[in-house]
Design a protein around this nucleic acid. Structure first.
Lengths: 254, 254
DNA sequence: GCGATAATGTTCGATATTGTTATATTCACA
DNA sequence: TGTGAATATAACAATATCGAACATTATCGC
C-alpha cells in the first residue's frame, strides 16, 4: 500500500499519543470524517493500527491478543478433549503439563482432582491450579514467554529432568501424516522432549486444528505416546500405525 | 475483541494499581457507572481482569483471603516505598525480586522501565511484569505456595544460584532491634539468602508494620543491605548502626 | 484540453455506544 | 439471620459512529 501523505502523519500522531480520534484528525487535516475513516481502515487493514469505535489505537501487544484468540478457538472441543484426558488421570498421582491452550484446559478439568502433584512450565496452568487446594504445583523455572505464558530455555529443561512422574500431558502445534509431532520453537521442543523422558505414560491432547499442518521442529512420534485425545478422527493410515504402536486413540465428541 | 480507548486505559490503571474501582473510573472518564461496568464486564470476559464487587482487579491467580488482606494493608505507603526503590533502579539492569506484597508493589513500579531483566520466585511478580514488553522475566522454579504465590524449596535456591544480577529487591517479615531481618519460613529464607549472594547491591523494602515484631528465622543483617526503603523512621540505635554499616536509609512519606 | 483514475465529499440506513430508569443482588453490620 | 445501603443487571431510549453508494472534485498522462 502506498501511504498517503496524511496517513503517514496519522501514524506519527498515533505513535506519539498511542491513539487517534476520527473527529480530531478530520479537524486537523480539514477533511471530512469519512475521509479519515477511510484512512484509518486502510491503516488498520495494513496492520499498522487497531481500529476502534471513534478512532484507532496503536497495536496492543500482539502477544495477548493472539493468545486470547487461540484460547477461544475451539473452546468447547478443547474442554471436551481435556475432560476425557483428565478422566484417565486418577487421584493421588503426579503429572507434568506443558505449554498450550489445550493443556490449560486439562488443568481446568483437574481442579476437582484430589492429592495430585502437577509439574508445569506453563504459567497459566500454575495460575489455574492455584485454585485446587489439594494439588501440589511445581513451577519449572525459566524464561517467561509472554506470548503464551510458557517457560522455556535450558534451565527449564534441567528443572524438568529432576522429576519422574506418572503422566505427561502434552500439546503439540502440529501432527503430520507420518505421525510426527511438530512444533515451532526449538527451545520449547527441548523442554517437551525432557518431559517425555520423565513420564511413565504420555498423553497427547490436541484439537482438530492441529492435524496435518506444517511446523518446523520435530518433537516426537506418536509411537512414543500412550494415548491421544483429539476431536476428529485421524487419517486412516495413521490409525493403522497407532494400532501397531499400541497408541490408544480417543476421539472425543464436543 | 476490539478494545475501546477507555478500556485500554482502564487496563493500564489496573496494571499500575493492581485494581480499579467503578466509581473512580466513572468520575475520571466522565461517564456513567453503567458504562464503566460494561467495560469491566467486557474486560473480564476477555480474561484480562477479574471482576469484583465495586470494581475489578488484575488476575493474580492467587486468590487467598489472607493474601488479599495483606496486599491491601498500607497500600498507599507500599506504593510510595516501591516507587522510591524503583527510582534507584536504572534502565538496562538486572535484578531479583523475592516474595512479598511490597516487592510486588515494586514490580508494578517497574512497568515503565526499559530493557530490564527480572528474576523472581514470586508468581505474582511474574504476572505483573508480563505487561512490560521491555522486561525479560525469569521465573525461578520450585514448589508453589498458594498462600502468596511464592515459589520455594531447594530447587528454587539452586535456580537462583545460576544468576548474578545488579540488584536484589527483597522484603522481610520482620526487622528486630539488632538489625536482623527475620522471616517465618525456613525454605523461603534459604531462597532469600541465595538471592543476597547473587546480587551486587541489595535493597530492602519494608512497610512500617514490619518493625520490631517477632519471627523465628534469621534471614540476614541490615549490614548486608545497601539501602532500606521504609515508611517510618527506624529506632535511633538502629539508625546509628546503619551509619556504621553504610546502609542507606530512605524514609518515604506516603 | 480531455478522458481516465484516484481522492474526497455527501447522504442515509445500519450498527455501536452510552445514558436512564427500574429491578435484582450482594455486602456489611447489627 | 435479617436489614438497609451499595452495587449490579436488564431493558429501552437517545446519541454517536460507521460503512456503502453515489456525486463531485482533483490529478495525471497524453
Amino acid at each position: 500500500m502506498a501511504l498517503r501523505f496524511r496517513q503517514s502523519e496519522i501514524l506519527d500522531i498515533a505513535r506519539a499519543d498511542g491513539r487517534v480520534v476520527v473527529e480530531d484528525l478530520a479537524q486537523r487535516f480539514g477533511v471530512t470524517l469519512q475521509t479519515i475513516r477511510r484512512d484509518l481502515t486502510d491503516l488498520a487493514d495494513a496492520g499498522m493500527l487497531d481500529r476502534v469505535h471513534g478512532g484507532a489505537m496503536m497495536r496492543t501487544g500482539v502477544s495477548n491478543i493472539g493468545y486470547e484468540t487461540r484460547r477461544r478457538m475451539n473452546e468447547g472441543a478443547k474442554a471436551a478433549i481435556a475432560r476425557a484426558c483428565a478422566q484417565m488421570i486418577p487421584d493421588n498421582s503426579s503429572m507434568i503439563l506443558n505449554i498450550g491452550t489445550t493443556t490449560e484446559a486439562v488443568a481446568r478439568e483437574l481442579l476437582g482432582h484430589r492429592n495430585i502433584t502437577v509439574v508445569t512450565n506453563n504459567l497459566n496452568v500454575a495460575n489455574i491450579l492455584v485454585a485446587n487446594e489439594s494439588c501440589d504445583v511445581m513451577v519449572a523455572g525459566g524464561g517467561l514467554r509472554r506470548s503464551d505464558g510458557g517457560l522455556v530455555g535450558d534451565l527449564t529443561t534441567e528443572f524438568i529432568a529432576q522429576f519422574k512422574v506418572d503422566y505427561a500431558v502434552i500439546g503439540a502445534s502440529a501432527l503430520d501424516r507420518d505421525g510426527d509431532l511438530l512444533d515451532f520453537d526449538m527451545a520449547e521442543v527441548r523442554v517437551s522432549k525432557a518431559i517425555l523422558r520423565q513420564a511413565r505414560q504420555v498423553f497427547l491432547v490436541m484439537d482438530a486444528s492441529k492435524l496435518d499442518r506444517p511446523a518446523p521442529v520435530r518433537l516426537a512420534s506418536l509411537s512414543q505416546v500412550d494415548a491421544v485425545f483429539t476431536g476428529h478422527a485421524l487419517p486412516n493410515d495413521l490409525m493403522v500405525k497407532c494400532t501397531e504402536w499400541q497408541t490408544a486413540v480417543h476421539i472425543v465428541a464436543a
